[in-house]
């Protein structure tokens, strides 16, 4: 996974609340069996509007997206995170995120930043005519005119993102604890395992 330190560039000033996963990537794009190439289907419905921000050359290739509350609500499709990543977005800044989406984003190395609505409004204004700069170690978003928004961040997620760490590899280091739990379950709740049937 790609390590994240500083993300600098234009930001899509989306601003909307309740952007659902069907809006991010509709079901017709869910039939791929690989993760690549999802970006072409991202925000397809919004892109039918000729004035949409995603096809506005001004924001082409922007690495940041700014939205309102409850971003990524709806289904658990990780394709939403893949689509956003595949279109080149490395960070989403929003008032809040659905639980599933923020988990999926993190697992794919997308930084999710939560900020209050007033700060989001400030960033949306700034994003319309200038760049934003995210500093993950410092936990700040800075506008071209020098306004700074500080954000909170889970220390473990921050550590993983900065170092590009693979979560599965980290968990496998806890093999002993997992095996111990499985032995306890076999003992106390034998009905949960069908390994016994095979034995």
């Amino acid at each position: 996974m790609k390590a994240i330190n500083r993300i600098e560039g234009r930001a899509y000033p989306l601003g909307l609340a309740n952007v659902d996963t069907d809006a991010i990537i509709s079901a017709e794009y869910l039939k791929k069996v690989t993760r690549k190439g999802m970006g072409e289907g991202a925000f397809a419905t919004m892109r039918r509007n000729p004035d949409n921000i995603f096809d506005n050359p001004e924001y082409a290739g922007a690495p940041i997206l700014v939205a309102g509350e409850n971003f990524g609500c709806g289904s658990s499709r990780e394709h939403a995170a893949w689509a956003i990543l595949d279109m080149g977005v490395q960070a989403v800044i929003a008032v809040s995120f659905s639980d599933i989406f923020s988990g999926n984003a993190f697992k794919n190395g997308i930084l999710t930043i939560e900020l209050p609505q007033a700060q989001i409004d400030m960033l949306l204004d700034a994003a319309r005519d200038g760049q934003l700069a995210i500093d993950l170690p410092d936990q700040t978003v800075t506008t071209e005119s020098g306004n700074v928004a500080e954000f909170g961040m889970d220390p473990f997620r921050k550590h993983c993102l900065i170092n590009g760490l693979d979560e599965i590899g980290l968990t496998l280091q806890m093999e002993d604890a997992i095996s111990r739990h499985e032995r306890e379950i076999d003992e106390r709740m034998p009905w949960l395992s069908s390994r016994r049937d095979a034995a």
């Binding site: 990780e78 995170a81 599933i100 999926n104 697992k107 794919n108 599965i168 496998l172």
Partner: peptide, 18 residues
């Protein structure tokens, strides 16, 4: 609860979730 594909992979490999 619902999970994304990376979590599906995490459960496949470790039978756990963080």
């Amino acid at each position: 609860f619902g999970i994304g594909t990376s979590e599906v992979e995490h459960v496949f490999a470790t039978q756990t979730l963080l």
